[in-house]
Simulated assay, not measured.
Amino acid sequence: MTDIKNTLEIFDAIETRRNERRSFLRFAGGSAVALGGASLLAACGGDDNDSVTPAPTPTPTPATGVTDPDVLNFALNLEYLEAQFYAYAAFGVGLNASLLTGVGTQGAVVTGTGAGFPRQVAFQDAVVQQYAREIAIDEVAHVAFLRSALGASAAAQPAINISGGTAAAPGAFSLAARAAGVVDANTGVFDPYADDNSFLLGAYIFEDVGVSAYKGAAPLISNKTYLEAAAGILAAEAYHAGLIRTILYRKGLQTPNPITALITNANKISDARDSLDGTVTNASTGVIGDDDQGITGSDATISNIVPTDANGLAYSRSTGQVLNIVYLSKAAVSLGGFFPAGVNGSIRTSAANA
Score class of each variant (00 low, 15 high):
Lys224Leu: 14
Asp191Phe: 06
Phe199Gly: 02
Ala43Asp: 15
Ala231Leu: 09
Ala300Glu: 11
Pro170Asp: 07
Thr285Gln: 01
Val211Met: 05
Ser39Ile: 14
Thr101Asp: 12
Pro69Ala: 02
Ala241Pro: 01
Val110Ser: 12
Asp47Asn: 15
Ala75Ile: 13
Gly29Asn: 05
Gln321Thr: 03
Gly151Phe: 00
Ala217Asn: 00
Ile205Met: 05
Ala218Leu: 14
Pro258Arg: 01
Thr301Asn: 13
Ala179Glu: 08
Thr301Cys: 02
Ile247Leu: 15
Gln254Trp: 10
Asn267Tyr: 03
Ala213Asp: 10
Leu335Cys: 11
Leu234Arg: 06
Ser284Lys: 15
Phe91Ser: 04
Phe145Val: 13
Gly278Ser: 05
Gly286His: 14
Ala126Cys: 08
Ile205Ala: 06
Met1Val: 12
Thr349His: 01
Arg273Tyr: 07
Lys5His: 05
Val93Asp: 11
Asp277Ser: 13
Ile325Lys: 10
Ile10Met: 05
Thr53Tyr: 06
Gly65Thr: 06
Ala331Asp: 12
Pro58Met: 03
Pro340Val: 04
Thr349Phe: 08
Val143Phe: 06
Leu99His: 02
Leu72Thr: 03
Asp274Gly: 14
Asp292Ile: 13
Gln124Thr: 12
Ala185Cys: 08
Glu9Ala: 14
Arg250Phe: 13
Lys215Asn: 02
Gln120His: 10
Ser350His: 00
Thr67Asn: 04
Arg317Leu: 07
Pro340Ile: 04
Met1Tyr: 13
Ile295Leu: 09
Ser346Cys: 07
Gly30Lys: 04
Ala156Val: 07
Ala341Asn: 10
Glu237Arg: 04
Thr59Gly: 09
Ala90Asp: 01
Ala159Cys: 05
Ala352Cys: 05
Leu220Asn: 01
Ala177Arg: 14
Asn197Glu: 13
Ala167Leu: 08
Asp68Phe: 03
Asn311Val: 08
Ile14Trp: 00
Val343Asn: 09
Ala310Ile: 07
Val33Pro: 02
Gly65Met: 02
Ala63Asp: 11
Ala87Arg: 09
Gly164Pro: 12
Val306Tyr: 14
Ala229Ser: 13
Ile135Leu: 06
Ala168Ile: 05
Ser23Leu: 06
Gly171Glu: 09
Ser298His: 15
Thr59Met: 01
Glu134Phe: 09
Thr225Lys: 15
Glu228Arg: 15
Leu253Ile: 06
Phe206Pro: 01
Ser222Lys: 12
Gly29Leu: 06
Ala351Tyr: 03
Gln130Cys: 09
Ala179Met: 05
Ala38Pro: 13
Ala229Val: 12
Gly216Ala: 02
Ser212His: 07
Arg178Gln: 07
Arg18Met: 05
Tyr249Arg: 11
Ser316Gly: 06
Thr105Ile: 04
Ala28Gly: 15
Asp12Tyr: 12
Ala180Cys: 03
Arg317Met: 10
Asn19Gly: 15
Gln84Asn: 13
Ser350Tyr: 00
Arg119Trp: 14
Thr264His: 14
Arg21Thr: 14
Asn282Tyr: 10
Leu175Lys: 07
Ala168Asp: 13
Ile160Thr: 15
Gln157His: 02
Asp309Met: 10
Pro69Met: 01
Leu95Cys: 07
Thr2His: 03
Tyr214Lys: 05
Gly278Asp: 01
Arg119Asp: 14
Ile137Tyr: 04
Val183Lys: 03
Pro192Cys: 00
Ala332Leu: 03
Asn304Gln: 13
Thr53Ser: 14
Ala154Glu: 01
Ala115Asp: 10
Ala168Gln: 08
Val209Asp: 04
Ala266Asp: 02
